[in-house]
């Protein structure tokens, strides 16, 4: 179990180093599909999967989802407009994200095929 979690974080951190930036960045690369997720989004992968395809049966597939839809969903979690049940989990995950970071993550997941 821990191996998987650590692997997720380690993968994203190593990839961030290789990309030349350890600090959180909101810049999105030209080819997002082949770019590692921004470091501030590494926690998304533990439930939504390395490529946006989750291993948990009740977590949505967000790989290839429309970026505008994803960004609006994340904003609604953050504002508390989406609430109750598992939405409470997402509220916790996004509460410290800036709008720029929300957009960057939405574009990254939207670009995964």
């Amino acid at each position: 179990m821990m191996k998987q979690l650590n692997l997720s974080l380690a993968t994203s951190m190593v990839a961030a180093v290789l990309a030349g930036s350890v600090a959180p960045s909101v810049a999105v690369a030209d080819d997002p599909q082949n770019t590692p997720i921004p470091a501030f989004g590494s926690q998304c992968l533990s439930c939504h999967g390395e490529d946006g395809r989750p291993e948990l049966a009740d977590v949505p597939i967000i790989a290839g989802q429309q970026p505008i839809y994803l960004a609006n969903a994340l904003r609604h979690y953050k504002s508390g407009e989406r609430t109750g049940g598992q939405a409470l989990v997402m509220q916790e995950m996004v509460k410290n994200l800036s709008d720029e970071q929300i957009v960057a993550l939405s574009q990254w997941f939207g670009a995964q095929q």
Binding site: L5, E55, L88, V89
Partner: peptide
């Protein structure tokens, strides 16, 4: 109390 699990387990 509302318990919220952020982990995949």
């Amino acid at each position: 109390w509302t318990l919220i699990n952020k982990t995949p387990f």
